[in-house]
């Protein structure tokens, strides 16, 4: 099992997004994809997922917060089934990501509803903040952003020593987007403003705290208080850039769908502090909770999101 990206090594409880699999274990999957295709890798995944769901303490701990919030307290058997289902779904997403890099982009189809609306918003010339989440396969969303004919920048931290590879690394091509390091000076604020002033696209994760805890607002998510980052809303307010909330989900063995769930325009904010962005944050959180309720096994935020 691999933790998802954009991790926060300095996050709560010393959580790390680094993959729990070894380089050798990843290599076996890459070998199977190359010589057995997606189905070959999926076959092994079912066995590996069963092992992790049963014996891995790390997997249990990473799955527990979300499964408990989403499904409530369960008996051992039901909780095992949910954990297994979640690990299999994550594994498929990671395999699909590798498949695109190893076997080529034609091995996966991505349908995007709302693409024309997104293009129109981008063409307003104020830049565009694309807010993604740890659901489905966010790399699929990144591939669709390429159709907007504008440079894409992503606020993302990659942990040292993580051996989980991105699709472009498999394909041996240049990374199709520029990375902005959230641990940099002022959380990358100077770079992000510059990107939006140029009318380009900035992609951020809306569901995980990467930088200063003070730049968060706590709201209820799946029935319990959880802090969410608000830097993107500050950027939107200062630059006039709209926020497009985009979710991806797996719809078939080799297909994904992207949906433009919300367009948030942050206007009329006055005062100081993170709380002034709460009304805008709530629109995102409501959309994310709706997604988690509708597609519970495509929600892959293994970060301890909740305060308790």
């Amino acid at each position: 099992m691999s933790g998802k990206k954009a991790g926060a090594r300095d996050g709560r409880n010393g959580w790390s997004s680094r993959s729990v699999g070894s380089k050798f274990q990843h290599g076996i999957f890459y070998f199977l994809i190359r010589f057995g295709g997606r189905r070959g890798a999926y076959g092994l995944l079912y066995l590996v997922a069963a092992w992790y769901a049963t014996f891995s303490k790390v997997a249990r701990e990473r799955c527990r917060p979300y499964l408990t919030r989403r499904f409530g307290d369960r008996g051992l058997t039901m909780r095992w089934r949910e954990r297994y289902g979640l690990i299999v779904s994550l594994g498929k997403a990671l395999i699909d990501r590798a498949v695109v890099g190893i076997l080529g982009p034609e091995s996966m189809t991505v349908e995007f509803t709302g693409g024309e609306e997104l293009l129109a918003i981008k063409n307003e010339g104020k830049g565009l903040i694309v807010m993604m989440s740890h659901v489905g396969l966010w790399q699929a969303a990144m591939s669709a952003l390429g159709n907007l004919e504008s440079p894409v920048h992503m606020l993302m931290r990659r942990e040292d020593g993580d051996i989980d590879r991105h699709y472009y690394e498999h394909a041996g091509i240049e990374r199709p987007y520029n990375l902005i390091e959230p641990g940099g000076f002022l959380g990358g604020a100077v770079e992000m403003v510059d990107v939006l002033k140029r009318g380009e696209i900035l992609s951020v994760m809306g569901d995980r705290v990467l930088g200063e805890e003070s730049n968060t607002v706590t709201v209820d998510f799946l029935g319990a208080p959880a802090p969410f980052p608000v830097s993107a809303y500050r950027l939107a307010a200062s630059t006039g850039a709209p926020i497009a909330v985009v979710f991806s989900r797996k719809t078939g063995p080799d297909s994904y769908k992207l949906e433009l769930a919300e367009v948030i325009r942050v206007t009329g904010v006055k005062g100081r502090g993170a709380e002034i962005f709460k009304p805008f944050l709530l629109r995102y959180v409501d959309a994310l909770e709706g997604y988690a309720r509708k597609y519970p096994f495509q929600f892959f935020n293994f970060f301890q999101m909740w305060k308790n």
Partner: peptide, 23 residues
């Protein structure tokens, strides 16, 4: 804090015509 930094970069351009691009 870094939230203020975002606003500060924008306002310096607005009031002084100076862009801060380089980190």
């Amino acid at each position: 804090d870094s939230l203020d930094a975002v606003e500060l970069v924008v306002q310096i351009q607005k009031h002084f015509g100076v862009e801060i691009k380089d980190m």
